[in-house]
Amino acid sequence: MAVSVRDVAARAGVSVGTVSNVLNRPDRVAASTVERVVAAIEELGFVRNDAARQLRAGHSRSIGLAVLDIGNPFFTDMARGAEDRARESGLSVLLANSDQDEQRETAHLDLFAEQRVFGILITPVGNTPRRLESLRAHGTPTVLVDQRADSDKFSSVAVDDVAGGYLAVRHLLDLGRRRIAFVGGPTRLRQVAERLEGARAAVAETAGATLEVLAREAPTVLQGRAAGEEIRERPASRRPDAVFAANDLLAMGVLQAFSMLGSVRVPDDIALIGYDDIDFAQSSVVPMSSIRQPSHAIGHTAVDLLIRENADGESFAPEQIVFQPELIVRDSTVGAAG
């Protein structure tokens, strides 16, 4: 049988109200009494049930975080940034993986609502879900992460992905590459669509440059390898001379396909650049150039916004914070001697 507050009070020889004060407002209780109550808690193995306290407060001390793919180190780093900031304020993070599935995303949002979370951080699968609008209208602060908000109803923390796509392809063009291939997808993911938009803008301003789009079903290593194999099997005259992958996982797959038979040399035959600058990018067999996003700072900043919205209530004005991406140049575009 679970130990109750009444059991603790009886063992310590105090009232139930005193035990409650020790748990919630220990500064109002004499030190000797606190010691007796704590000793009784330890002897009985009492574990507090926060359900009633959450009902009184209107929310828990947990933040719901839903990401597109927890297998992607970018989202892992972002979650760590959120957790680090949450911990500073006595909050915890409940991490959910939508796996780019809108139904799973909705199920996670419903669960967060049932848990009366302190707030929600989410990288939506597509456009901002209506469920989010309902949750926010009923008092649950919400911040979009790694995606800019569609309107001024929500705060968001993101990176300028159009600028990032432009940076990546501009780098390839400045190296003299002219036949660029973009490996990415699905384009219903706004991040992918915006990186492609930036790539097209760079190509459009360069005479003689072309952009081929190799659409992928998902931004994974396996999908990147399939794209790389498709390129590798072409005659050399029909291959691109540079590849921009929509994230580093895709770029790693492309590099694996090129390296397997040794028939395509990176960067001599084909220069390769990814996006996110995850740790694996610099430690791959050919260190990969990439577009760096401040993943930890994105998570950290998003929690800051949640805390401010919770504190300000209806007077809070949503903010859209946009970080600028950074070009990181390594051997996969300029070679070891570059």
Rank of each mutant, 00 (worst) to 15 (best):
R61Q: 13
R239N: 02
A207D: 15
S263N: 15
T333A: 00
A9F: 02
V162Y: 09
R225L: 00
L55N: 01
H171R: 01
I307M: 08
S4D: 02
E133C: 12
R308Y: 08
V8Q: 03
V221L: 12
V264S: 04
N24A: 12
A204Q: 12
M78T: 13
Y166S: 13
A31N: 05
D101I: 03
A204M: 10
V285F: 09
M252H: 03
A30D: 13
L250R: 01
L306A: 08
I70F: 09
I180Y: 05
Q320T: 14
L167M: 10
G71H: 06
S332H: 04
L327I: 04
R148A: 15
E35I: 11
R330V: 06
E102W: 07
S151T: 12
Q223L: 08
A209D: 03
G184L: 08
A227Y: 00
N310F: 11
L272F: 01
S283C: 14
E197N: 14
V93C: 06
N24S: 13
P294C: 03
A149K: 01
A218H: 12
V3C: 03
A10E: 15
A86R: 06
L250T: 06
M1T: 15
L167T: 06
G45Y: 07
R195F: 05
G176R: 00
S92V: 11
G13L: 05
V8N: 04
V303G: 10
E102R: 10
Y166A: 13
S290G: 06
A40W: 07
L306E: 05
E114R: 15
H296D: 09
P287I: 01
E35N: 11
V37A: 05
L261Q: 14
A113G: 13
S290E: 05
V34G: 06
N127R: 15
V145E: 07
A204R: 10
A82N: 05
R200E: 11
A226D: 10
G119Y: 05
D276C: 07
A113E: 15
L121M: 03
S32D: 15
S15I: 03
A271C: 01
A9Q: 03
F118P: 04
Q256M: 02
R225H: 00
R131K: 15
V221C: 04
R11V: 14
R131Y: 08
V19W: 02
L261C: 12
G71T: 11
Q54A: 14
H59T: 10
E314N: 11
I270T: 00
R136I: 12
A39P: 10
